[in-house]
Design a binder for these strands. Sequence first.
DNA 1: AATTTCACG
DNA 2: ACGTACGTGAAATTA
Length: 362
Amino acid sequence: MIFEEAGCSFNLNSPKQLGEILFNSLKLEEKPKKTKTGQYQTNEQVLTRLAVRFDIARHILEYREATKLKNTYVDVLPSHVLEKTGRIHTTYAQVATATGRLASNGPNLQNIPIRSAQGQEIRKAFIPRSPDRVLLSADYSQIELRIMAELSGDPGMLEAFERGQDVHSATASRVYGVGLTDVSDEMRRQAKMINFGLMYGMSVFGLSQRLGIPRKEAQEIVESYFAQFPGIKTYIDKTIEFAHENGFVETIVGRRRYLRDINSRNKTIRMSMERNAINTPIQGSGADMIKMAMVRIQRAMRDAGLESRMVLQIHDELVFDVVKPELGPVREIVESNMIQAMPMTVPIEVDIGVGDNWLEAH
DNA sequence: AATTTCACG
DNA sequence: ACGTACGTGAAATTA
């Protein structure tokens, strides 16, 4: 099908060949974006934009999704089943990431699909070790935004969490000056983009690109945001200043990440380090919190003599293989220790689900 | 070994 | 004028 549309056959797994077909032979774009090595970009963002007008782009996206899932998960995971246990065991690297998160490899169980319908079918394959058990998944709700609220002490952001509001809707309500119930889906989508973007050090230009709006409009949105949440602006400015003066930033409990190039004369490098400075206390504090929770939970489960086991950590989520009669005590131990892992001013919420597979538990 | 892409938080 | 959102691991292709 794709080769018919292309007018010839080629290696569909080769971004290089695909780019030449799309942009040299078919000329689907006037001035295609190139990678730093001069090849045409053919990533999802590019193909999605083309897919509005060209069926071939849509078909390539479908091919990419299917082959990604097959090659990375369906064909590979069975080979990781250990003979001794009959189960898959990952290895967690405790000193691998720059921010203090864990990393998972051999296989990576921190990137099991969930977003697409086909991906969800893969997640369903993760089940308890025996029929007398269920999987319990506990994840921190909006943990990084809560940490940003904590670090910044911004009254508006704290208030949204204290009132138990949907933080993106609450943000949209303030930024666009409408009632909480009058927030449209589009307004919430934009507010969500800003909330996440700011935690990553996104620029006005970056926001305009992602929202598909002119820079000027993005600038106005950001100005309105900082007028409503001045503490966030102060946090960003103070954190960058601290990093320039000290050469490191730190999490809530004082763990540091050194940023050797924070004072680089190269603007690109320096700005990259400034984004690291903004994000690391947020992502790193979340990593500290869940690690402290894991230690407390493990201890509590052992002390209670439970047979249920903590089996996975996925950054803001813990998964447990639970013997059914232990569901009550496990739920209580997990929830209370995740919430109390680190002393916080902002309320911490944990969502817990139970099911016969990982998808259901979510 | 480097590049590109894409799965996840 | 430039470059433009953080953190990972893995697969396939290219060099």
